[in-house]
Design a binder for these strands. Structure first.
Length: 156
DNA sequence: GCCAACGTTGGC
DNA sequence: GCCAACGTTGGC
């Protein structure tokens, strides 16, 4: 019996890696690397599984909001960038034999015809409990309920 | 570019 | 183990 599919919101700065960059990537797939927050790491390790759906959120962008949909295509595995001295995500304190940081692979599903902006998310009463609409919600990987996921995608 | 919020670090 | 200092995030 397969595990029930779950839903997430992944933040990415559009100038760094946008939904268009994901669509243009080889196999339309990329490692979601560079996560350097323990709470987010624990979600990757313990909760997020292949087959889960992802709201692709452009942070620090104009506009800021949900720009597309992706899906998780590989369970968590060690993030190679932590051992790469040339990477901005290099972590010299992460032990080789017990990697501190993990990543999953995500694949492009679709780009929304328009960005569902943060202001709209905040204005929708059905999304009042959604983490991204809350003040100071900086977590780059956030859990989303199925209802929230469907509500957001219906706002296009 | 500003700055509030928040996570991490490190001295004690 | 506390907590001030510091760095980063991210909306605006």
């Amino acid at each position: 019996m397969a595990r029930t599919k779950r839903y997430w919101l992944f933040k990415s700065e559009a100038s760094a890696f946008s939904i268009d960059d994901l669509a243009a990537a080889k196999d339309e797939t990329t490692p979601w690397d560079g996560v350097r927050n323990y709470q987010a790491r624990n979600l990757l390790r313990d909760e997020i599984r292949k087959g889960d759906r992802v709201l692709y959120y452009h942070s620090n962008s104009r506009p800021t909001g949900v720009a597309g949909v992706a899906r998780v295509v590989r369970d968590a595995y060690p993030d190679a960038t932590q051992f790469d001295p040339a990477s901005r995500y290099h972590d010299p304190r992460s032990p080789q034999d017990a990697p501190r940081w993990l990543c999953v692979d995500v694949a492009f599903v679709r780009k929304l015809p328009r960005v569902i902006e943060l202001s709209e998310l905040k204005a929708n009463p059905a999304l009042a409990d959604m983490m991204v609409t809350r003040r100071g919600a900086r977590l780059s990987i956030q859990p989303v309920t199925k209802a929230e996921y469907e509500t957001v995608l219906a706002m296009v």
